[in-house]
């Protein structure tokens, strides 16, 4: 019963939003904005609360079991500190909340991102061999991009920069365009299958 109602709602909203796309009437435009911007943002925001509660519950049960207890406690403390700071001092300019963001969250986030440079370098050292013609094309395209778009740009000959621009603007863009066309067609068929009730995996199971 619950699954049938969910499918009917999915079809109704899908058909409605599809139809609204073809209307320039102010009521249709405002309804489209209301559903796609306000409804979506509000439902996602409340879903985030559900996710946070779920995160806290899982961590608390792991703490009770003694599974990675110190790290779970640190996660929960980090999670609790931010709302507490925001409630007491607000989130403006130089508040403690923004201090935590600037000196704790941003440095760690960018360091995790930078850490991947080492793994990319080590993976390319092991895997970047021109063993076949397609691999040689991959290697050449990567080297052209690296030499023409880095600080070496002024040192390398002009024709390398021009070749890199040509590769990026033509063969590389052609493949990108074909991938985008494929994504478009794939999204189109998946959306139709979802609206028509052929694709039902999003409903989950009853177990």
């Amino acid at each position: 019963m619950g699954r049938r109602i969910a499918q009917i709602i999915c079809f109704a909203f899908g058909a409605l939003l599809f139809a609204l796309y073809f209307s320039q009437h102010p009521t249709a435009r405002s309804l489209n904005t209301a559903v796609m911007i306000d409804y979506w943002q509000i439902i996602f925001a409340i879903t985030l609360l559900v996710g946070v509660i779920s995160f806290v519950r899982i961590n608390l049960s792991n703490i009770r079991r003694g599974d990675n207890r110190p790290y779970r406690i640190i996660s929960l403390v980090g999670l609790a500190v931010m709302p507490i700071l925001a409630i007491i001092w607000g989130i403006k300019g130089n508040s403690p909340f923004m201090w935590m963001f600037e000196y704790v969250q941003v440095p760690m986030q960018s360091t995790v991102f930078a850490l991947l440079a080492f793994f990319v370098a080590s993976a390319s050292f092991r895997g970047f061999r021109a063993r076949s013609a397609p691999a040689a094309v991959l290697l050449t395209a990567a080297l052209l991009t690296l030499t023409s778009r880095s600080s070496l740009e002024g040192i390398v000959p002009q024709f390398i920069t021009e070749a890199a621009d040509w590769v990026r603007g033509n063969p590389s863009m052609a493949a990108r365009r074909a991938i985008l066309i494929g994504i478009g067609l794939g999204s189109l068929t998946t959306s139709l299958r979802v609206i028509l009730g052929i694709e039902r995996t999003w409903l989950g199971s009853d177990k």
Partner: peptide, 28 residues
């Protein structure tokens, strides 16, 4: 399942013309 149905349904409804226009027709 009801809010998920609203999100999935409206997302799919918007995706059909938007994807056709931006991803497929414009690229072709």
């Amino acid at each position: 399942r009801i809010p998920i149905a609203v999100l999935i349904g409206s997302g799919a409804g918007v995706a059909i013309p938007a994807m056709l226009e931006a991803r497929t027709l414009r690229q072709i």
